[in-house]
Nucleic acid binder design. Sequence first.
DNA 1: CAGTGGTCTAGACCACCCA
DNA 2: GGGTGGTCTAGACCACTGC
Lengths: 230, 230
Amino acid sequence: MVKTAFRDVRESMRRKILDGEWAPGELIPNEAVLAEHFGCARATVNRAMRELADEGLVERKRKAGTRVRQTPRRRAQFDIPIVRREIEARGQRYRYALVERAVSAPPDWLRARMGLGPEGRVIHVTATHYADGNPYQYEDRWINLAELPAAETADFTASGPTEWLIATVPFSDAEISFSATAADAELARHLGCAPGDPLFLSERSTWWQGGAITYVRLVFQRGHRMTTRY
Amino acid sequence: MVKTAFRDVRESMRRKILDGEWAPGELIPNEAVLAEHFGCARATVNRAMRELADEGLVERKRKAGTRVRQTPRRRAQFDIPIVRREIEARGQRYRYALVERAVSAPPDWLRARMGLGPEGRVIHVTATHYADGNPYQYEDRWINLAELPAAETADFTASGPTEWLIATVPFSDAEISFSATAADAELARHLGCAPGDPLFLSERSTWWQGGAITYVRLVFQRGHRMTTRY
DNA sequence: CAGTGGTCTAGACCACCCA
DNA sequence: GGGTGGTCTAGACCACTGC
């Protein structure tokens, strides 16, 4: 086993908080005192406490000391899956089908969204992702050719733009949002649902080294749920 | 300024990865070498590297060393807001209105969802949250009276069950999920939208010390978006 | 001003796990 | 078996900030 002193200390402190021994708002003994209490070095207490602070359970300030948060911060964390892996991880067969691909000038709403200038061209790719033969997700993607000229010659017939981007752009910042929309005629056709059906969707804008790379709208089959624990 | 050696080292390493100097899949020099390279202690490199690993940018294994991830793990993190604060943070006026409150035996679907036995009672509270006078969120909450008998005498007329729970239960584990649904007649009435409108919703089940505490369904006004960066 | 947390160091031990 | 990361320690310096 790896040494676990800091975990033990952390969990021990967590218990004191959860059990109310250290009440919300209360000042916790300082690191030196705790180190002696737990029979370890101050650095060990520091690491344990830092993790509790990262979690949002306590709040630390120099001189003022460490306090139990009145309201523990609540955060949820999601893994953003690649649709192929998401489907295959559930033991289903993945299939990809390109719907359309076109190069054009960016529409106004996209220029606003990605912060593009009036010049420039984008490639627009739409595709459907299937799980066991059933439509699972409809992808509507725009790629900024000014930043990624190679996208113009990329082949999106066999695999999707997501996988091409992942292989091409090593890493990126992104803004992601989730919402609900009603299926229009086109979505209904591609997803095999009824027009008007409520659909869960995810939108993502991605930047790399300050430049806008891509915007994608992923609409899921009706009934889709995104779940996590925290 | 606080000392920033580990941050400098971390960002320096991040750049090497983002710029491709350390390519995906590639083995990174070991900690001892890096410590010498950066002119710092190995512990400093270790902390920097550990944070990159937490981020999902690199993968570490004893003996095998540290590698740049082929596909950086993509994670999104959301703060789960308390609706009152969410609204007030946007400078809008918050108003709460209790719709109904009733004590009963748990319906079957709830028993399944929360893992409740056939015995026991639950309190069911529905309420609407308003921003600047407009319906913002409809809350449909169930609280397990076996775990939280005090809920039966709690007053939910002035403020919502969420705030009562936060003040009562110090901390908890939760499972949260997001999806889309169509407004039924009741939702349409409470949210002031049309029946059939696509609505974004969040569901959360909460446990405390192994016991199921509460299940809540929060349905947002149409057009709602949940956004984050990563 | 002085107490507290934030950080760094040099050294050490060892669990893990690939070769 | 041996190299690598994981962790701990004891000590140190200091930025920050409440008093």
